[in-house]
Design a protein around this nucleic acid. Sequence first.
DNA 1: TAATTAGTATACCAATCGGTATACTACTAT
DNA 2: ATAGTAGTATACCGATTGGTATACTAATTA
Lengths: 195, 195
Amino acid sequence: MNEENKYEHTNRDKILACAQKLFYERGYDAVGVQEIVDAAGITKPTMYHYFKSKHGLLENLLDEYGNQFLGELEKEIEKDGSYEDVLRNFVYTYISVATKNKEFYLMAISLFSSARDNEAYIAAKPYLYKLLFVVQDFFRKNASKVERLVGKEDFLSISLTGVINYYLLVNFERGMSEEVLLEEHNIEDIVNQFV
Amino acid sequence: MNEENKYEHTNRDKILACAQKLFYERGYDAVGVQEIVDAAGITKPTMYHYFKSKHGLLENLLDEYGNQFLGELEKEIEKDGSYEDVLRNFVYTYISVATKNKEFYLMAISLFSSARDNEAYIAAKPYLYKLLFVVQDFFRKNASKVERLVGKEDFLSISLTGVINYYLLVNFERGMSEEVLLEEHNIEDIVNQFV
DNA sequence: TAATTAGTATACCAATCGGTATACTACTAT
DNA sequence: ATAGTAGTATACCGATTGGTATACTAATTA
């Protein structure tokens, strides 16, 4: 009945997009519901109709934006090639997807590092593990190609995720552009640490 | 007149200690001033007497606890030895100091990853850079011993900090103890990535 | 056509937010 | 002795917090 792209300009999507931007700029706790609905040009009951609470809004945000992010990373694991090649592609894709969704990505990193008993951390925790599992899957599939790395899959996934996250965090803070972040010598620096 | 350790049980220190604990548990924005002063067993005007605002409280907290943390790391840079030896000691000291001040350390990591325009991030930013500079100093002094690493000091410092931070974040989350975190094979895994 | 449902707004709630005006006490310095 | 200062409490401030009761409209379904 409706193949049209209605789904792009609904109030629900406007709320998600505005919440994402505000959470990125100032953080989940610092942004009030009123501010979100003002930015989206609607009123509170509309937000509480779609998402049952502020917490529910964050959960939906993480679910829709986050799984899209992880999906793109998972596709990269399927590909075949030498360890160094697939690693290089994986790192490139990770940074590429992260920079393309810079605001969501930084928001997610912030949530992953939030305080233990913070409401936002509790919502983000499953995705922190999902990301870790995706990177672990990558190493479980490919580390077997290099004897020295066998058995180190857990550490390697923590280490790679840590390096890339901090690399992006610091260099976004420095105002570095997507193109520079993806330059060959920068990718190569990261790759070289894992060969 | 007073060589005694008065300075450990003053209201000021009680406020700092309680704020640190609460910020660690639930985050700066999620914790109200009232809750802090209740935990410290005093009232608001006392807090506003010592620190001019909630923001000022955080600044003092970072200044006193943070500089102590960085000081212990800086001492390690002075020491001499082969690249691999000083690196191993540096990593060991970093993790050791971080685990001994686990609550403060996790709070700091959380602040470093906070949203750009968040009040807490603005207070933490100088210390994010200070930490980066300390690690950079380490590599500027020692990377010269290994030709392959010369010129990579900036990347190396980001990378090492990223690995250790994420290593501690994930393994604290997993409930891993200080002893395990400092086990030789775990330290060696990290060190091996930087030789 | 009648009944139901999804979506939205007006107007409100108690509770909490960060912060302060005022006044008191206890100590210090003159 | 007296003036000043540091520290502390009672009681309050306006603003904002997350959330909702009620009512309306527009579209769908029976």
